[in-house]
Design a protein around this nucleic acid. Sequence first.
DNA 1: CGTCAGATTGATATTCATCAAGATCGGTGG
DNA 2: CCACCGATCTTGATGAATATCAATCTGACG
Lengths: 241, 241
Amino acid sequence: MSEVELLIRALSLRDELPKAEEQLLRDLPMRVRSFSRGDTLIASGARSTESCLMLSGFSCRELYVEDGKRQIAGVHIGGDFVDLHALLLKIMDHAVVALSDCRAAFVPHAALVGVTQKAPHLTRLLWMSTVIDAAIQRAWITSMGRRSAVQRAGHLICELYTRMDAVGLASRHTLVVPFTQRDLADMLGLSDVHVNRTLRDLRARSLIRWEQQSIIVPDFQALADMAEFDPTYLNLVRVPR
Amino acid sequence: MSEVELLIRALSLRDELPKAEEQLLRDLPMRVRSFSRGDTLIASGARSTESCLMLSGFSCRELYVEDGKRQIAGVHIGGDFVDLHALLLKIMDHAVVALSDCRAAFVPHAALVGVTQKAPHLTRLLWMSTVIDAAIQRAWITSMGRRSAVQRAGHLICELYTRMDAVGLASRHTLVVPFTQRDLADMLGLSDVHVNRTLRDLRARSLIRWEQQSIIVPDFQALADMAEFDPTYLNLVRVPR
DNA sequence: CGTCAGATTGATATTCATCAAGATCGGTGG
DNA sequence: CCACCGATCTTGATGAATATCAATCTGACG
C-alpha cells in the first residue's frame, strides 16, 4: 500500500485513472514528514521547490490580518494535494498549518513539471484538483456573504462530511474532526463565542450532535436542506476530463 | 492585432512566453460574441464544451442562494480566461454574467486539450491563471471573514486597480468601472445601503472619489495601507513557471 | 415631462462581537 | 492519588456593525 493511495482514490472518483498514470503517481519522489497539531507545514511567503500532499490528518490554509485575526480559507484531509498550486505560484500567499497530528508528503516541483511534460491527462487531473479547491472557496465566499451563521456552519459540516465520505474517512453519520470551536470560528469568519451558540442551535434542532471530537449527523438530508447544500460543486462524478 | 493580445500580455507578465506558444494562442479556434450588461455568458449548471476568454468589458461569477440573494465571487476583465476551469469541471457551479457591455471568445475544449498534449509550458501558464484566480478568492474570503466593511471595499478597489493597471486598463489614478452599488454589495457580501455608507466613508477620508462610472484613487498607497492590501498574491512577477 | 433605475438618507431591528465570568476536562507534577 | 493548571467550552450582559424598511432625491432617457 503506497503513500499515494488516497490521492489515487480521490482522482479515480472523478475520472478513470489508467494504470500507467497510477504508476506515475506511485513513482513520484517524495519526502514524508510527520507534524503535530499547530505545526506549520508551509510558511506564508515561502518560495517552495516542493508541493505538499496530505497523507493523513487535517491541515488548513491560514491567513492573518494585521491585528492578529486569523482566517482559515480551506480545510484539507488525506488525499488532498494541498499545495499543488505552489508549483505555479512560486511564492505562498498563505500558510498551511496542521489542525491535527498529520503526515504529509513533499514532492519536488521538478518531478511535477515532469508529469506535465509526459502525462497530459494526469496533468489535467491534477489541475482539476486545484480547480475543485477553487470551487470550494467559492462556496465559502457564498456562505460568508449571504448565509446566516447557522447555515454557514451547517454548510461547512456538509462539505466536510461529503468530502470525507468520498474517500472513506467518514463512518455511518460520524465525522471525527480535531477542530476546536476557535478553529471553526476562523473558518466561518465568526467569533468563537458565536460559534458556540451556533452549534448549540444546531444541536437544539437535532441537526448535529457533537461529542468529544466527533460530529454526528443523524439526518444528512435535513442538514443539507437547512444549509442549502448541493454537492455538485465537489465534482464527485466520474467523467472523462 | 489578434483577439488574444490581452491574454498574451497577462501571461507575459508572469513568465516569459516563447513566440511559439504565443502563436499557439493566436491559432486557437474561437467564436467571438458580444454581450450587454446583464447577459449571461455561461449559465449555472451548464455543461460547456467551450471555455470563455474575456476580450473586453467586465463580467463576474455569480451565485444565488435560495431566497434570491446574490453573491459575486469574482470580477473579470479583458485578458482573463474566466471560464478555463470548465475544461476540468464539466459542470458549472455558478454563472458568468456581464457587468458591462463586453466581448468574449469561446474556445472549444478539444483545442485546449490539444494544448495540454503538445505544449506543457503553456499548459502550466493556463493552469497558473486558474490558480491565481483561486488566490484572489482566498483574499476575498479573508476580507469577508476578518475585515471591516471599509477595509473590504478598499481592498477590492486595490485589487481591481492593480489588476487593471497590470494589463494597461487603468489610467493615472482612475478606474472606469461599470458597477452599481448593488453589484459592489454583492461582491462584498453587504447590503446596498451599507455599501453606500461605506463609500461615503471612503470619500470622506479622501481615499477615493467616485464620479459617474469612475473610481479615482488619489493616493493608492494610502488606500492600500488602510485596507492592508499586499499585491503579492496577484503574482505579477516574471519568473519561470 | 414622466418614468425608472440607481443613489442617498433616516429610523429601527437584527446579528454578531466583545467583555467577563464560570464550568469542564485532560494532563502534569508532587 | 490528588491538587492544580491551562485550554476549551459555556453562558450572560452589553455594544457595535450591519441589515432592513421606507422615503426622498437625482439624472438619464424616451
